[in-house]
Structures are given as C-alpha cells and as structure tokens.
Design a protein around this nucleic acid. Structure first.
Lengths: 156, 156
DNA sequence: AACTCTGTACAGTTTAAACTGTACAAAAAA
DNA sequence: TTTTTTGTACAGTTTAAACTGTACAGAGTT
C-alpha cells in the first residue's frame, strides 16, 4: 500500500461525502472543505487547504468563515505557529442536524409570521365575498405549523 | 374591498409561501408556480400561469414538468377545453414531506453505498499503517445510517 | 523602528443556472 | 385535406453564483 493509494481513497471519500454535506445547504466548496478537515487528524492552515483542494486561498478564507459561522469548524491555537489553524468539529451528526433543523425552523417561522400578518390584515377588511383566499391562507399557515413540529422532532 | 386588494394579497402570499416551498429543493420559479396553482380554485393553463407570473410560456412548460415529476401538480381534463389544465395537489404536507424525505434518503444511501465500496477496497489491501482513514470512513458511514433513520422517522 | 508574513476586501473573471424567443411536431378544427 | 392551435426542443441571452489575483491593513518578527 503506497501513499498514492491513500491519496486516491481520500480524494474519493471527499467527493462522495461532500455530496451528502451539500444537502445540508453548504456550497460545494464549503462541503469539500469541511470533509477535507474532517479526514485530517491535525488542524490545517489556509495554505494547506488551498493546496489540497487546488483552489485559491481567498476561497479558503471565505469558505472557512462560513463554516465557522455554522459552528462546523474551529480555530485552534498551537504554540509557535503563526498561521491560523482550523479543525472540523467532530460531532458530525449533532452539528449538522442542529444547524439544519434550526435553519429550517427559523426560516419557516419567518414566513409563517409574514403570512399571519397578511391574514390579520385581510380579516380587518370585509371579505365575505372572498372566503377562499382566507381558507387557503389558513391551510398554508397550518402547513408551517406542521413543518415546525416535524423538524423539532428531528432535533431531539 | 376591491379586486386590487385581493390581487395584492395574493401576490404577497405567493412571495412568502414560495420561500418555504423553495426550501424543499424547488427552484424559485417552480415554487411560485406551485403556490400560484395552490391558491387558485380552478385548474389553470400554461397561458394563465405565464400571464400571472409574468414569465415565458416555455418556463411554465418546464416548470410544470418538474412539478409533475415530483407529483405536486396534476394534469386535469375538462370537456371542451383544448389546452392542458393543471392543478396543485392539495395534500400539502404529505406531498412535500414524502418527496423530501425520499429524496434525502435516496441521495444519502447512494453516497453511503459508494463509501462502503471504498471501505471494502481499503480493507482488501493491507493498511495497518493507516488506521485513521478507515476509522474516519466508519464514522462517516455511520453518519449516513443515522441520517437515514432520522429522516425515516420524519416520514411517518 | 523597519521588514515580513497572513488573512481578507474588492474588483474582475469564469462558470453555471435561469429564462426567453423562435421554430416546429403533434393534435384539433375547419 | 388544409389551417389553426398548443406544448416543447433548442439555441441563445441574461442573471446570479463561484472563484481568482491583486493589494493592503494589521499582527509578528528582527
């Protein structure tokens, strides 16, 4: 077994696993970046990532920032090393599920609020002639309620 | 209460609800198209949709095809009407959740299979010197298992 | 202090997705 | 049959996302 075999396997793993990670709403680069870090046993610098993925350092910088915002990677300090070192958060399932569910619920609720506001506005006016629109609105708002409760179940 | 108020409200509802629908993986146009049909009480033609959304008929055609593939809209027949008429599937929650969960599980399993294949290939070779890579691979495969079981719970 | 290194802001480029208009095959009407 | 209508294939355009290279501020080193 030589190094090139390991490298090929690593490359294949990155490619496949990144597809799954993308489904959580990460861009292709962010996904590959995360997977790369996850497969490494030591924290890596922007230059390491840039070389390993064959993309510019600027891309690494912005990608890492996003991952950091999602709490998927962490900046670690190591004595004597000037460059920033990043490592993947290793609680895979928890990290992704929590992020994902939270994102869904927040977005869904945001739209639900807007729709409820429209609902109230319509009720203030006299719309006896147009019952369908409020009926539909009620159903749509209820749909958002179901979404929230379903995704909340997913979280725990 | 005049028509323009109803039209404005309809427009606002489409805008907001479409954002939620987009989260299920539909494109902005597909989402708006679905919501438009959902809010209408009669089936509509491609020309109706084109005019209502202010987009080309070609876009409507491709959009409707996608929605049809997802089983989110249905072609309905009405005596004496030449044009195709489409209506939204009204089982909102069931339609979207089933689609979504199925899509997730299929994609996740697809990647899991590919990763398991890599795992077997690596085991065939002698890789005692590199235990980390198989350890990580095991964890990643397990992550896919957790995903599947979580999303399966969401379905029922 | 001056000099070096590192991360990122920003403008510009490349790449991919969304969308349109024309043209035409298939079906309906005359 | 010929004529009209309807949906979609396809090529081309517009719009948005991804990505890069240069330049520079701030921190570290000498």
């Amino acid at each position: 077994m030589n190094n090139s075999t390991i490298e090929n396997a690593t490359y294949d793993i990155i490619s496949e696993f990144a597809k799954t990670i993308e489904m959580f709403g990460l861009s292709p680069l962010e996904a590959r970046l995360f997977v790369y870090l996850y497969l490494q046993n030591q924290p890596k610098t922007l230059d390491d990532m840039s070389e390993a993925l064959g993309k510019s350092k600027t891309s690494m910088s912005t990608g890492i920032r996003s991952l950091s915002d999602f709490n998927l990677v962490t900046l670690v300090w190591r004595k004597g090393v000037r460059k920033d070192l990043y490592e993947a958060n290793n609680e895979l399932f928890k990290s992704f599920m929590n992020n994902y569910v939270t994102k869904w619920i927040n977005a869904s609720n945001h739209q639900k609020d807007a729709l409820e506001k429209i609902h109230h506005e319509l009720k203030k006016l006299n719309i006896e002639e147009y019952p369908e629109i409020t009926d539909n609105l009620t159903r749509i708002i209820d749909f958002h309620r179901q979404l929230e409760s379903s995704f909340r179940r997913l979280q725990s």
